[in-house]
């Protein structure tokens, strides 16, 4: 039996793309990963927008989530780059700064919690790559996929790379390898590492600018012959899916890695939620 993880849901997955949540649960079951519920968790909180308002508030709310995970005795598993970014960053700060840890604990005590600074934070893609391994994933593929896909890493999965240390942030391969194990082909495209445009409060504060980012990416991945977009972040997912609907000129179904694995591992399609997205993927 593989390791046990406390599943951190975040906001966008459970409230807008629940297919990502159900696919993650199904795929973890298939791979023998035990998930415990992170009861009472709140927003991570969002690394771009909420941290931009007030860093101490951001840190206290993140610390509450880390303390709740500590009670389960399991490491946190995120399915979103934003949640991964915030919780990893906050765990890093609180592990290394006893003064900050003391000050958040003063607040957490009011709600009966005390954080020890030791919770580890993982991302679904990183956990599968490191803990499960490509060979094991391959042995679970029942329906190999034949498709050309544009892999979108997003920003907070690998960066800042000095603390994440997962892969080369300029030319990473971890996600391409995780995708290609299903039989899908990860195509090269111009400005592959470019941001989707949603982060940092830009989608909420300056939606026209966020759209320009997304359009640029869509143009480039279309020119390279992609059929689908693969991501590991529900917020990038929302940005690609909804912006395509608004623009009306592109129709690439957006697939989270967990949904892609669900497809390739033979998880019942009604559990993947791909048919109910703005740009439906009918498989």
């Amino acid at each position: 039996m593989a390791k046990k993880y406390a599943l951190f849901l975040g906001c966008v997955a459970p409230a807008r793309y629940p297919g990502i949540e159900s696919s993650t649960r199904e795929v973890c079951k298939e791979l023998g990963i035990e998930l415990v519920e992170l009861e009472g968790a709140g927003c991570c909180p969002a690394p771009g927008v909420i941290k931009s308002f007030e860093q101490d508030a951001w840190l206290a709310i993140a610390a509450r989530n880390l303390a709740l995970a500590q009670k389960t005795g399991a490491d946190i598993l995120t399915i979103c780059n934003g949640c991964f970014g915030s919780l990893f960053d906050a765990a890093h700060i609180l592990h290394n700064d006893p003064e900050k840890l003391r000050s958040v604990n003063k607040i957490l005590r009011e709600v009966g919690l005390e954080y020890n600074g030791e919770t580890k934070v993982h991302h679904f893609a990183e956990m599968v790559y490191k803990e499960i391994g490509l060979d094991t994933v391959k042995s679970h593929i029942k329906a190999p996929l034949e498709m050309n896909v544009a892999v979108h890493y997003g920003c907070h999965f690998l960066k800042p790379s000095n603390i994440k240390q997962l892969d080369d942030p300029e030319r990473p391969k971890i996600l391409d390898e995780l995708v290609e194990v299903t039989g899908a082909k990860s195509i090269e495209y111009k400005d592959k590492q470019m941001c989707c445009g949603a982060g940092g409060g830009v989608r909420s504060g300056n939606p026209a600018l966020a759209t320009k980012f997304t359009e640029e990416k869509l143009k480039n991945l279309k020119a390279a012959g992609a059929q689908y977009i693969i991501d590991v972040c529900p917020f990038c997912h929302l940005q690609f899916d909804r912006t395509q609907k608004e623009l009306g000129t592109y129709s690439f179904p957006v697939i989270h890695l967990s949904q892609l694995y669900g497809l390739a591992m033979g998880v019942p399609k009604e559990r993947l939620g791909l048919d109910i997205q703005e740009i439906p993927g009918n498989f």
């Binding site: 906001c11 159900s22 206290a60």
Partner: peptide, 26 residues
Amino acid sequence: LGLPRRPVNTLGDKKALEDFQKVLKA
């Protein structure tokens, strides 16, 4: 999709939401 209508986080747990708000207000 076979999920609970409301998740076990602050989107579905009132007491958790109150704790969350208490921390944020502090």
